Amino acid sequence: MHLTLHADYSLRVLLYLAARPQGLVSTQEVSEAYGISKNHLVRVVQALGKEGFIEVRPGRAGGLTLARTPSEIPLGRVFRATEPDFHLVECFNKAENTCPIAPACGLKGVLYEAREAFLAVLDKYTLADVIQRSRKDLADFFLPPAAAGGP
């Protein structure tokens, strides 16, 4: 299983904002912190805003901030909102299934159960849980080397 960049970047944006709760953050700042294309990040930010995970304030004095507290952002909901589909195998998508053994195959049920278990685990955690499990200096990872005390 491999998550799309959209889902991956969505989680990164949320982590960044949770690690920087003191004010608005620019899309450019997030882009530079992760080395992600700003153009791609803009689409991620728009989707997160539309889903109500973040607040997007346009303009020069604008920026991004979490729309809810980290404890109110369930990871399962983030994944369901940002991952386009969870079709682990072709036969999960009935409209495009061309597998000749699909009607008799027992693997489909096992993979379906595995997918549901994956989502059930994510449903148990919030963004706050992930931040709590992170190192206390998570926010420092986003500082430029000079500001973090580096060379």
Rank of each mutant, 00 (worst) to 15 (best):
A81G: 03
E116T: 12
L122C: 05
L64Q: 11
R135C: 06
V56I: 13
R77I: 00
R133F: 09
Q132G: 10
T65L: 08
I73P: 00
L48F: 00
Q28C: 03
D8Y: 06
V45A: 07
A139R: 14
D123S: 01
D85I: 10
I54K: 14
Y34E: 05
T4E: 10
P70A: 15
S31W: 02
P145T: 00
L5N: 08
A139M: 10
A67Y: 02
G149M: 12
V25L: 12
A67L: 02
V45N: 02
L75Q: 01
T126L: 11
T82A: 05
E29D: 09
F53S: 00
R68E: 07
A120P: 07
E51F: 00
R115P: 06
E72K: 00
N97G: 07
Y34H: 04
R133K: 09
L48R: 07
E90K: 12
L143P: 12
H87F: 14
C105E: 12
Y125W: 15
V13M: 04
R133G: 11
K38P: 06
F53T: 00
G63C: 03
A95H: 12
E90P: 10
I36P: 07
F141L: 11
A67F: 06
E90M: 10
V56N: 06
T126F: 09
P100G: 05
S37C: 00
C105D: 02
Q132M: 07
R43W: 13
D123F: 03
L17G: 06
D129Y: 04
L138A: 08
P58H: 12
A148Y: 10
A67M: 11
D123I: 01
L64E: 08
F86N: 10
P58C: 02
L107E: 15
R60G: 12
R57Y: 13
E51Q: 11
D8A: 10
G149N: 03
G49A: 07
G109W: 08
R68I: 01
E90R: 09
A47G: 10
E32W: 15
I73H: 01
F92A: 12
F86W: 13
P74M: 03
F141M: 14
D123R: 12
K94C: 13
I101F: 06
L64A: 09
Y9T: 07
G49R: 03
L122G: 13
G49D: 00
L75H: 04
S134H: 02
I73F: 03
A7G: 05
I73E: 01
L5Y: 14
V78W: 15
D123V: 02
L64S: 12
P144R: 13
I131L: 14
S26T: 15
N97C: 08
T4M: 09
E90H: 06
A81F: 01
L14F: 07
A139Y: 13
P58R: 15
H87R: 07
V44Q: 00
D140C: 08
A114Y: 08
V130D: 04
R43V: 12
S31Q: 02
P21F: 14
P100A: 10
C105K: 11
E83Q: 08
L15P: 02
T126M: 00
L75Y: 11
P151D: 10
P70Q: 09
P58W: 13
A81N: 08
E55G: 13
Q46C: 12
